[in-house]
């Protein structure tokens, strides 16, 4: 098992998490958030794909926390999804973004919430692809990531940017990779007659030499685990 994830992401890191839909990106982010909260840190979660209520239901559904566990409700959600379906603010959201196409506004809302987090907190942007799709000016996204990554780093916090693999060309992914401290890829292995395997690989990490082989992500009694390599 990779020490990088086992011991939590190092302080002051920015990670790009890239993978196709359904490959376990959201589960991994939730696992990291829950682990952090159990250790007394905070987690800020920007969602563009689903309501906070649904995300918590998903986490409970796959067994990341039990029914009577209130850890999940301590995640601070920023809701950038409800506006799209005309819903009111979600009960678990501490803030909401009504117009994700305005990337400056998004940046401002995240920074306002991020600067009052306790040290060693985790910020999750799930997903950058959702923001890119909404945004009129796609090149502004790179600038947004560069600034946000370094501001959060500077506070001694950690940030994970989630990216849908199919939604971007290689040039965009490469360019975003070059702006963060580390990159993690996820994938789904689909072999005839076998259950789907979800795998994870740490591609690169500044100042560390991670194990770069693929590892399987398994949902067990203690949440998401990494196996093999």
């Amino acid at each position: 098992m990779s020490t990088l994830l086992k011991e939590g992401l190092p302080q002051g890191t920015s990670i790009l998490l890239v993978g196709p839909p359904g490959s376990g990106k959201t589960s991994l982010c939730l696992q990291l958030a829950l682990e952090g909260i159990r250790e007394g840190c905070e987690a800020l979660y920007l969602t563009t794909e689903s309501t906070p209520t649904n995300i918590l239901a998903h986490a409970q559904g796959v067994g990341l926390f039990q029914k009577d566990d209130t850890t999940g409700t301590k995640i601070k959600f920023i809701d950038a999804y409800s506006w799209a379906i005309g819903m009111r603010k979600d009960e678990y959201a501490i803030d909401r973004i009504n117009n994700p196409s305005d990337i400056n506004k998004v940046s401002l809302v995240i920074m306002n919430q991020a600067q009052i987090l306790s040290p060693r907190s985790l910020v999750i942007v799930d997903s950058v692809s959702g923001l890119t799709l909404a945004s009129q000016k796609k090149e502004r996204i790179r600038n947004f990531i560069h600034v946000l990554a370094h501001r959060i780093l500077r506070q001694g916090n950690r940030v994970v940017f989630v990216l849908e693999e199919g939604a971007h060309d290689m040039a965009t992914i490469n360019s975003l990779r070059s702006l963060v401290q580390g990159t993690i890829f996820t994938r789904i292995i689909d072999r005839d007659g076998c259950p789907l395997r979800r795998e994870l690989r740490i591609l690169s990490f500044i100042g560390a030499s991670p194990k770069t082989s693929w590892m399987e992500m398994v949902l067990g009694n203690e949440g998401l685990q990494l196996e093999g390599g």
Binding site: N174, S175, R177, S178, G182, T183, L203, S204, F205, I206
Partner: peptide, 8 residues
């Protein structure tokens, strides 16, 4: 080189 390839 591609990103994450030890250039720095």
């Amino acid at each position: 080189g591609p990103p994450g390839t030890v250039k720095a």
